[in-house]
Nucleic acid binder design. Structure first.
Length: 292
DNA sequence: TAATAAGCTCACTGTAGAGC
DNA sequence: GCTCTACAGTGAGCTTATTA
């Protein structure tokens, strides 16, 4: 007895933005270039953990600052210090909270290039593609100058991604924001420390599951990539190793089914040449045959 | 065209920190 | 010290792009 859902024609942004759905795509977009909801999501994404990692700038904070007119685009994040006194006055804010946020914003200027590329929110350019581009071009200016042909000649960069990049870097509005980011001192270079420093794990693909005690998953991912390895989100026949921490998830059983070699955290640390923590994984689950 | 991987969103739990 | 909010960490599931 289901009744067909009639999708709204206009966005709730209040700017009479028409909702459009591109052929072959699922998502609807508000056509209005100044849609405040798109702006909120863009800034949230820019500040998110895997992008510029600005602690204290989550969904609610972005919503509040956009509503109050303090944030107008991603570059305006670096103008927030001008409003320090006004921010302290806000409900549930205080001097410490504001200073922590401003400090986190200042710190974010030092993030490596691949995080900035990811944070710009270019369609089809996620974390993985951002790393490939940063590694290949070394700085943002080289990426901005690259033609569609230059981009598609890179392994794993396809036509859609290249078109999206060229479209983004020829848009005058985006270029204006990028120039502001440059003027505020945001890092545009890929630092050596984020580029591969070894070939020990070259040609190997890893999948992480469960909770690691000695480092976060992101840290483990960075270690693997620095040593030339690849980290994937799902287990397949091509997976070389599954690294299983405490309480491993379904990827563990997937690995068993496919006969993929599973390493526990101790073995993983040995593989990457890291020291084991003092407690020697005292909290590892006893029922987990992985650790037998 | 199928397999694979990447990207993205959501849900859930635990924790930190600010306000009261 | 309690309450509330936001963040951190993680797994799962879905869609989509790339590759073979």
């Amino acid at each position: 007895d289901a009744v067909e859902f009639v999708f709204p024609e206009y966005c709730e942004c209040g700017l009479q933005g028409r909702l459009v759905r591109l052929p072959g795509e699922v998502a609807y977009f508000c056509e209005h270039p100044e849609c405040p909801w798109q702006l909120r999501r863009r800034i949230e994404h820019f500040a998110s953990r895997n992008a510029m990692d600005i602690e204290g700038m989550g969904e609610k904070v972005v919503d509040q600052l956009v509503t109050l007119g303090f944030l107008k685009n991603i570059a305006s994040v670096y103008e927030l210090h001008q409003f320090r006194d006004k921010l302290i006055e806000l409900e549930r804010w205080g001097e410490k909270k504001v200073d922590n946020l401003l400090e986190a914003i200042e710190e974010s200027k030092k993030r490596p290039l691949h995080r900035l590329i990811f944070g710009l929110g270019i369609r089809f350019i996620g974390e993985g593609a951002a790393k490939i581009l940063a590694k290949h071009f070394k700085n943002l200016d080289n990426i901005m100058k690259a033609s569609k042909e230059d981009l598609t000649s890179i392994y794993e960069i396809g036509e859609k991604m290249a078109e999206s990049l060229v479209r983004f870097f020829t848009d005058p509005k985006e270029l204006e924001i990028i120039e502001k980011l440059r003027a505020y001192g945001v890092n545009f270079e890929e630092k050596e420390e984020f580029v591969t420093i070894g070939k020990k794990l070259e040609g190997l693909t890893f999948v992480l599951t469960g909770e690691l005690q000695s480092m976060t998953r992101n840290e483990a991912k960075a270690k693997i990539e620095q040593l030339g390895g690849k980290v994937s989100g799902s287990v397949s026949k091509k997976t070389s190793f599954v690294i299983a921490g405490a309480n491993p998830g379904s990827k563990y059983s997937d690995a068993v089914k496919l006969g993929i070699k599973i390493l526990n955290e101790e073995e993983f640390l040995e593989l990457i040449g890291e020291e084991k923590p003092k407690d020697n994984f005292a909290n590892k689950p006893e029922s987990n045959t992985l650790f037998d």
